[in-house]
Amino acid sequence: MSKRQPITIKEVAEEAGVSQMTVSRVLNKQKLVKESTRLRVEAAIASLNYRPNLMARGLAGGKSKLIGLAYYNPSPSYLSALLVSALKECRDLGHHLVIEDLSDIEGVLDNSVIVKRLSSIRLDGLILAPPLSSNLALLKLMHDMGIPVVALSYRDPQSNHSSVAFDDIAAAFTMTELLIEKGHKRIGFIRGPREHPSSPQRQSGYENALKAHGIPIDKGLIFEGDFTFKSGMQLADKVLDAKEPPTAVFASNDDMAAGLIAGTQRRGVKIPSELSIVGFDDTAIAAAIWPRLTTVKQPIAEMAQTAVDMISDITSANWNGQPAHVTIDTIQIIERESLTTPH
C-alpha cells in the first residue's frame, strides 16, 4: 500500500474556497484576513489534518528566525512553563528556538562567557529570563552586538531593549490582602534571591499590604530563600522556631512554598490548620503537592508568547525601531487547600 502524501496548502485552499495566499496569511497570523475567512481556513486545516512544513514556510518567505532563550534560573517549575510556551509560539510562527542554559557555567557568571556562548549562534533575537534580564551590563553588550533583546520580568523604559513584565507588586499585595481578609495578622514572607528582579517587587507588595491594613512589618518574619524547593524546606525550622511564629507564610514562589510545606510537615505541623502557606506562580508543583497550594497565577505562558511575538516584530521590516514595554496586570489568585482561617 502506497503511503498517503502529506496534505498541501493547495488542498487546504480548495477545501476552504480561498487562495493559497490567504491560507498562508492565516498560517502566519497576519491581520489582513477577515474573521469569517480565517475561521473557514482553520476549519479546513483541522478537517484535512494539515501539518505545515515550518522550515519550508520560513525559508520560502524569508521570515524564519533564530530566536534564543537564555536562562540562569533555579526554579524548574517556572522554566518548564516558560520553555514549553516559547517553543510552541516559535513553532506557530515558523521560527526556531535555541535554548541556552547558562547554569552549567562554573564559578561566577561572567558576562564575557555569556557573550561568547551567544555570539557563536548568530541569533536574530534573544529572550532573557530573570535574573539575566536585569543584568544591565549584559543588556548593553547585546545591544552593542546588534542583537535585539526582550527582557522578562524586568522593565526599564529608558533602555534600548524591549520587555515583558508581570505586575509583581500588585499581585503580592493582592495575595497578602487575601491572607489578612482570612484573619491572619502574623504573616511571614519568604523572599527570593536579591539579584532576581521580582524579589524586591514581591516583598514591596507584601509590605505595602501590611501597611495599608495597619499591621506592623516584623523583620523577624521575613526570611531569605533562593526560589528553590530546598531553600523552602530548609527554612521550615526558622519559621516554626520564630519567637512569635506566623499563622501564615507567603513564599514568593511555588517551589519555596512546596519546600516549606514538606519541611513543616516533617516537624509534625498540620497544613493548613496549624499554618497556612501560599505561593506565587501557579506552576505545576502547586497542584501536585498536598495540600494543594493557594498561589498567585503568574501568566508565564502569556509572557513567553508575547516575548516571542516581540522578537518576531522587532526583526521584521516594518519595525519602527522603538523598544516596546508590556506589563501584564491581570491578577488571579488560585485558592486551594493550603490556606484557611487561623485557629
Rank of each mutant, 00 (worst) to 15 (best):
K3Y: 12
R4H: 13
Q5S: 15
T8N: 10
K10I: 07
V12K: 02
A13D: 04
A16V: 14
V18R: 07
S19T: 11
S19M: 06
Q20T: 14
M21E: 08
V23T: 04
R25P: 00
R25W: 08
Q30G: 11
L32H: 15
V33N: 08
K34V: 02
E42Q: 15
I45W: 03
S47G: 15
Y50K: 04
R51A: 00
L59H: 07
A60E: 10
K63P: 02
S64R: 14
K65R: 11
I67W: 07
P76I: 08
P76G: 04
S85I: 00
A86E: 02
L87T: 13
C90V: 03
L93D: 00
L93T: 00
H95W: 01
H96P: 00
L97S: 01
I105P: 06
L109T: 00
N111Q: 09
V113D: 14
V115H: 12
K116N: 15
R117D: 02
S120C: 03
S120R: 13
I121G: 01
I121D: 03
D124T: 01
G125F: 09
G125S: 01
L126M: 06
L132F: 02
S133M: 07
S133T: 03
S134I: 01
S134H: 00
N135A: 00
L139M: 08
G146P: 07
G146W: 13
V150Y: 09
S153P: 02
R155M: 14
P157K: 06
P157I: 04
H161Q: 10
V164L: 03
D168R: 02
A170R: 15
M175W: 09
L178P: 00
G183M: 07
G183H: 07
R186C: 02
G188K: 08
I190A: 05
I190L: 07
S198R: 13
P200C: 06
R202I: 11
Q203L: 15
Q203P: 07
I217N: 04
D218G: 03
D218Q: 09
G225R: 05
D226Q: 06
D226N: 13
D226E: 12
F229R: 08
K230T: 13
K230S: 12
S231C: 12
G232A: 04
K238Y: 03
K238R: 12
A242R: 09
P245R: 12
F250P: 05
S252Y: 05
D255V: 05
M256D: 08
A257I: 13
A258C: 08
L260Y: 02
A262H: 10
R267H: 10
R267Q: 11
V269A: 01
K270Y: 10
I271H: 07
I271D: 01
P272T: 04
E274H: 11
F280I: 10
T283Q: 08
A286I: 09
A287N: 12
A287Q: 14
A288G: 00
P291R: 06
T295H: 05
T295V: 01
V296E: 04
M303R: 10
M303K: 12
T306A: 11
D309P: 00
I311G: 01
I314L: 12
A317E: 13
W319S: 14
W319Q: 10
P323M: 11
P323L: 10
A324G: 11
V326K: 13
V326S: 09
V326E: 12
T330N: 15
I331E: 07
Q332T: 14
E335P: 02
R336Y: 05
S338D: 02
